[in-house]
């Protein structure tokens, strides 16, 4: 599940970076295709971030203490 979360984050970063470039280019070149592409990148960014959040929540709910964050902040009784 840690791998899923990390993939979600890095994919979100990639989509965000692409969104910046496509948005700026779409505005500058007045290219509707680029603008649509930037908007889809923004949507994909949202989906990937949500995926990472879900991956972390699942680990919290499963008390997966192999994950450093879960081990640092949770115990089954709290």
């Amino acid at each position: 599940m840690n791998e899923v979360g990390s993939v979600g984050l890095i994919a979100a970063l990639a989509f965000a970076a692409y969104g910046v470039v496509a948005g700026a280019m779409g505005g500058k070149l007045r290219s509707l295709r680029m603008v649509r592409s930037a908007e889809r990148a923004a949507a994909a960014f949202f989906v990937m971030i949500t995926l990472a959040i879900v991956a972390l929540e699942i680990q919290i709910l499963r008390d997966n203490f192999h994950n450093a964050y879960v081990a640092a902040h949770l115990c089954p009784t709290s």
Binding site: A12, L13, F15, A16, Y18, G19, A22, A41, A42
Partner: peptide, 9 residues
């Protein structure tokens, strides 16, 4: 979109 994605990045 570009500004929001820059913040997101």
């Amino acid at each position: 979109v570009a500004i929001l994605m820059a913040t997101g990045a």
